[in-house]
Design a protein around this nucleic acid. Structure first.
Lengths: 252, 252
DNA sequence: TGCGGCTGATGGTCAAGACCACTTGCCTGC
DNA sequence: GCAGGCAAGTGGTCTTGACCATCAGCCGCA
C-alpha cells in the first residue's frame, strides 16, 4: 500500500527504542521486553527482533534474568566508515587535502576491471595528499569514470567533501563498497610526498564503491603512513556481548 | 536442572544447514524455508533464526520471492573472529601450528602493562609458527600469566585449539578483546621463520583478551606475511534512512 | 509470435502464547 | 543474625498460524 519505502513495524519500534535509549544514561535498564511490547503495541517477537539489531550494533546489552541495559557508546568497527575526513575527526585530528594532479586518462586494464568498464573508457585520475593536523597522512589515487562526473575540476575538490560533491552536484550516492588492506612499503615517490624514509612500512588500501543499483563509482588506492596510522578493532565473542563494563560498574 | 551443555535446537539446525551448504555449490539454492522447516522438524521461525545467522555470517544470500542461495565464500569481517584456525578455515585453507618455544619468564614492562600485572610476575612466553596449507603464514608470540594456566606444557598446545584448552582445562573463558593492526617489515629472524626475504611487508597484530569479569588473559603479538594475507572489509552505509522513511510514512 | 497478466512458490513480517534458564531479592527456618 | 531456599521477574527459545511482497514462469489472448 505504501509506495514510499517499506517501513516495517520493526523499523518503527527500532526508532522508538533508540529515542528511549537517548533519554537514558549508560548502564540504565530499559523496560522489560514484555512491558515494552505491550506499551508499544507489538508482539514480543517484533520487539525482540528490533532489540536484537540494536544489541548487534552495540547500543544495548542483554543480561539473562536481569534485564536489558544501555551500553557504552562503541567505537569499534573502524572499517565501516568511508570518509577520510570522518575517520580523522573520530581520531581527534583535523583533516585537510592537497590535490596533486587531475588527469583525464584511459582506464587501462586494472582500473577497468575494478570499475567494470572498458579499458578504453575515460576516467579521471586524481591524486591527493591527505593531511591530518597539517602533516601528511596518506597518498590517495582516485579513479572515477568521466561519464559519471563530466564537469569535474580540481577547484571543486578543494575544501569540499568528495562524497558530498558526488551527491549534491552529480546526484551519485554511494551505497556500499569493498576494501582490501595490505601491508606494503613506500616507494621513492610516496616516501617523498609523505615525508617518510624510503621503504617505510605503510598500509595499502584499495577500495571500490558502488551505487545502490550496482554501478561502480570509484576505485581508490591509498597509501597510509604506518608510523601515524593504525587500525583498532574490538573483538567480542559470539553471542556473548561484553558485560564487562556493566558488571564492574555495578559492583562499584 | 540441566547441567550438560546447552545445545539449542537452533544450533542443531545451523549445523545441519552448514552440512547442506557444503554439499551444494556456490550459487545453488537450498530448499525453501517451509520445506526445510518441516523436513528438519522445527518451526519456520526457528529455521529462519538459524538462516539469519548464516546470512549475517555470509554463508547464504536471500532473494525475496526466489529462494535462498549458497553465497561466495566471504572473507569480510575478519576482525570479529579470534582464532587462527577458524580464520584459515573461512579462507578455505587448512591451519596447522608448530610450537617453537615455551618459556616461563618475567613479564617485563610491556607485557605487564598489556596484561595489567606486575613486571615481576611470571608469564609463559610461547612462540608458534602458524601454517596455512602447510606453508608459513604467521609468527605468533603469546604471553599468558602462569597463574592462570599453571600446568601448561608444550604438548598441550600441539593439535589442540588454544581457546578450547583454556576453556576445557583451565575454565578460562575469553569474552572480549582489543586488537591493533599496523604495517611493518620483517626482521631477520621473522624473515627466516616465515620464509620471506628480509624487510618484507607484513602485518603486525597485537591483541589482548579478557574474561567476562575483566581479567586479562593473554597478550598476543603476531607477524603475518603480507604476501599471503590481506584483510577485506565490506563497507555499507549506515542504516539511518529509517528515520526519514518513518517521517515520510507518518505524513502519508 | 509476442507480450501481458495470472498464479504459485518464495522470502518477509507479525501475532499470541508457552515453557525454559537465569538472576535477584525476599523470607523463612535454623 | 544468617544461610538457604523459594518465587517473581527477566531474557532465551520455540511453536502454530497467518498475511504480505516479490519473483518467475506459465498460459492465454491479441
Amino acid at each position: 500500500m505504501l509506495f514510499y519505502g517499506v517501513v516495517t513495524k520493526q523499523d518503527q519500534i527500532r526508532a522508538r527504542v533508540i529515542a528511549l535509549i537517548r533519554e537514558l544514561g549508560v548502564g540504565q535498564a530499559i523496560p522489560s521486553e514484555r512491558r515494552l511490547s505491550t506499551e508499544l503495541g507489538v508482539s514480543r517477537l517484533t520487539l525482540r527482533a528490533a532489540l536484537d539489531e540494536l544489541v548487534r550494533e552495540g547500543y544495548l546489552v542483554r543480561r539473562h534474568g536481569s534485564g536489558t541495559f544501555v551500553s557504552e557508546p562503541k567505537i569499534a568497527q573502524q572499517l565501516t566508515l568511508t570518509s577520510f575526513t570522518e575517520d580523522m575527526r573520530r581520531r581527534g585530528m583535523v583533516a585537510d587535502s592537497r590535490t596533486i594532479s587531475l588527469d583525464n586518462v584511459h582506464a587501462g586494464p586494472q582500473v577497468a576491471r575494478a570499475l567494470n568498464i572498458s579499458p578504453a573508457d575515460r576516467v579521471f585520475q586524481i591524486r591527493r595528499l591527505r593531511l591530518a593536523d597539517g602533516a601528511p597522512m596518506a597518498l590517495e589515487t582516485l579513479h572515477v569514470p568521466v561519464s559519471l562526473v563530466p564537469a569535474l575540476t580540481a577547484a571543486q575538490l578543494e575544501h569540499a567533501s568528495w562524497y558530498e560533491l558526488l551527491e549534491d552536484r552529480y546526484n551519485v550516492v554511494i551505497a556500499s563498497g569493498l576494501q582490501t588492506i595490505e601491508p606494503t612499503v613506500t616507494n621513492e615517490e610516496e616516501s617523498e610526498l609523505l615525508s617518510v624514509p624510503l621503504h617505510s612500512p605503510a598500509f595499502l588500501f584499495e577500495r571500490t564503491s558502488q551505487t545502490p543499483d550496482g554501478r561502480m563509482v570509484e576505485f581508490v588506492r591509498s597509501i597510509y603512513r604506518g608510523d601515524r596510522y593504525r587500525l583498532v578493532a574490538e573483538l567480542s565473542q559470539r553471542r556473548e556481548p561484553s558485560v564487562t563494563a556493566l558488571a564492574a560498574a555495578e559492583r562499584a
